[in-house]
Amino acid sequence: MKPELREQILTILAEIPPGRVTTYGRIATMTDGATPRLVARALRELPADHGLPWFRVITASRKLADHGGAEEQRRRLVAEGVLFDRRGRAPAELLWP
């Protein structure tokens, strides 16, 4: 991945406000050529001490992606007031931007 593309993704990630979520695809459309998979890859490659709100990025179906950090992601989102319906989806009105 080009460093400038990674930088765009991380800049967008840093802008997601608390209590809101966005999707891999929405982030991709805000860049100069990333795909949702590239966004996911950039998040997977974050160093442990990054401090960016990776947990605010969900799938296009408004669910958590199936990954090892999903329980931590859910815990952090619930702590910010993001509640999931019985099908595991975040409310559409919380999508950013």
Rank of each mutant, 00 (worst) to 15 (best):
M1W: 01
K2G: 10
P3C: 10
P3Y: 12
E4Y: 12
E4Q: 09
E4D: 10
E4I: 05
E4N: 09
L5P: 01
R6P: 00
E7A: 13
Q8P: 02
Q8A: 10
T11M: 15
L13V: 08
L13S: 06
L13D: 04
E15L: 08
E15F: 09
I16N: 01
I16T: 01
P17S: 02
P17H: 05
P17Q: 03
G19C: 01
G19L: 06
G19M: 04
R20H: 07
V21H: 03
V21K: 00
V21N: 01
T22A: 05
Y24N: 03
Y24S: 11
Y24K: 02
G25Q: 11
R26M: 11
I27C: 08
I27E: 07
A28K: 02
T29Q: 10
T31K: 06
D32I: 08
D32N: 13
G33M: 14
A34K: 02
A34R: 06
A34V: 04
T35I: 05
T35W: 03
T35L: 11
P36S: 00
R37N: 07
L38C: 01
A40W: 10
A40R: 13
R41K: 12
A42K: 04
L43I: 13
L43C: 10
R44F: 13
E45V: 05
L46K: 04
P47Q: 05
A48T: 07
A48C: 06
D49L: 11
H50Y: 07
P53V: 11
R56M: 15
V57R: 05
V57W: 07
I58P: 03
T59P: 07
S61E: 13
S61W: 13
R62F: 13
K63R: 15
K63C: 15
L64N: 01
L64K: 07
A65W: 13
A65C: 15
G69F: 12
A70H: 07
A70K: 09
A70L: 08
E72S: 12
E72A: 14
Q73Y: 12
R74M: 08
R75L: 11
R76K: 14
L77Y: 02
V78R: 05
A79K: 08
A79V: 07
A79Y: 07
E80N: 05
E80H: 04
E80Y: 09
G81K: 01
V82W: 02
V82P: 00
F84R: 00
F84Q: 00
D85W: 03
R86K: 05
R86S: 07
R86W: 06
R87D: 11
G88W: 02
G88P: 04
G88E: 00
G88M: 06
G88N: 00
R89M: 09
A90K: 03
A90I: 06
P91S: 13
A92P: 11
A92D: 14
A92Q: 10
E93N: 15
L94C: 10
L94S: 05
L95F: 11
W96E: 04
W96A: 10
P97C: 09
P97F: 12
P97S: 11
P97H: 08
